[in-house]
């Protein structure tokens, strides 16, 4: 025992180096598995404040771009107004003098929470956004994030007033996507090369695809509502060794100029996750 202490005493620097190095590796590997950083809430609060202050300056310079995005989005929404579509009226309506009860009972599934982007990176292999909206304002882990032109990412970490979003431009990001025209589903990844192009995998060669086809979020995703724009196909890579296409997708979202996004809350998320994570008993 005494010798051990003597050894540590003599090689104190080396031992402390090894200990700290191991600590780093543990933090790194733990974070990659769960996306929960050590002391993340406190650190998030601090870095978020710095981000928020600087973002106030940045926003000023991109007002023009924000205006353009908003007017484009407005035009798109107006375009899909009910009043724009006329159905020839051939139905008859029965009026009864009582209160009607909605027997279908529609209920809300998705809530949209607007948030300001206060931090955004695109230059590294693992890119994140910081939003100025946190746990107190209703953001939870696992919620999806939608920009004015297309989807942006998924919330991975929440502190009291800020939240961290794993951008689509992250080497570990994976989003379920489908082709708008025939609903064939695949998965969206990023290869780390160019921030304006994503990769769509697992589209079978039987499906008839063309350049310019629109890719949207699929029905299978728990956090994203379906049919949100992701991008358009720009290149079809035909690998003869597999039965699947690898497609290059131009992102709908312009990640260079994100200022305001919507965090989407799926009210049934917890229920769906609970069901999907229960282990199925096999026949024994």
């Amino acid at each position: 025992m005494k010798n051990i202490f003597l050894f540590i005493g003599r090689h104190f620097t080396f031992v402390s180096f090894i200990v700290l190095q191991i600590l780093c590796i543990i933090m790194l590997s733990k974070y990659n598995k769960t996306y929960e950083a050590f002391f993340s809430a406190t650190a998030n609060e601090l870095t978020g404040k710095v981000n928020a202050n600087l973002s106030n300056v940045y926003t000023y310079f991109s007002l023009k771009e924000i205006n353009r995005q908003l007017s484009v989005e407005n035009a798109r929404l107006r375009d899909s107004l009910k009043a724009n579509f006329i159905a020839p009226d051939s139905t008859k309506k029965l009026v009864t003098d009582t209160v009607t009860i909605d027997s279908i009972k529609q209920y809300r599934k998705f809530n949209y929470l607007p948030a300001k982007v206060v931090g955004n990176t695109i230059s590294s292999q693992t890119n994140y956004l910081t939003l100025e909206r946190g746990f107190k304002q209703g953001v939870r882990k696992g919620m999806s994030v939608l920009g004015p032109e297309g989807i942006v990412g998924v919330v991975i970490d929440v502190s009291e007033n800020f939240s961290r979003v794993m951008s689509l431009l992250h080497r570990n990001s994976k989003v379920s996507a489908m082709l708008k025209k025939d609903n064939v589903a695949g998965s969206i990844e990023w290869d780390g090369v160019d921030p304006s192009y994503l990769t769509l995998r697992n589209i079978p060669k039987s499906s008839n695809i063309q350049k310019g086809d629109i890719v949207v979020t699929s029905n299978y995703s728990a956090n994203f509502p379906s049919h949100l724009p992701i991008g358009t196909i720009t290149e079809i890579i035909n690998d003869p060794s597999t039965n699947f296409y690898t497609l290059k997708i131009k992102t709908a979202t312009n990640f260079y100029s994100l200022q305001y996004v919507d965090v989407i809350e799926n009210i049934q998320y917890a229920e769906q996750m609970k069901l999907e994570n229960t282990k199925q008993k096999s026949n024994e």
Binding site: F17, L20, Q21, L23, C24, I25, I26, M27, L28, Y31, A37, F38, A43, N44, L46, T47, V50, T121, S124, T126, Y128, D157, R164
Partner: peptide, 16 residues
């Protein structure tokens, strides 16, 4: 690392 949300990635080479 806390600014770039990659705990350990920059700390390890700095230590080295």
């Amino acid at each position: 690392d806390y600014f770039t949300q990659t705990p350990g990635l920059h700390a390890a080479p700095c230590l080295l």
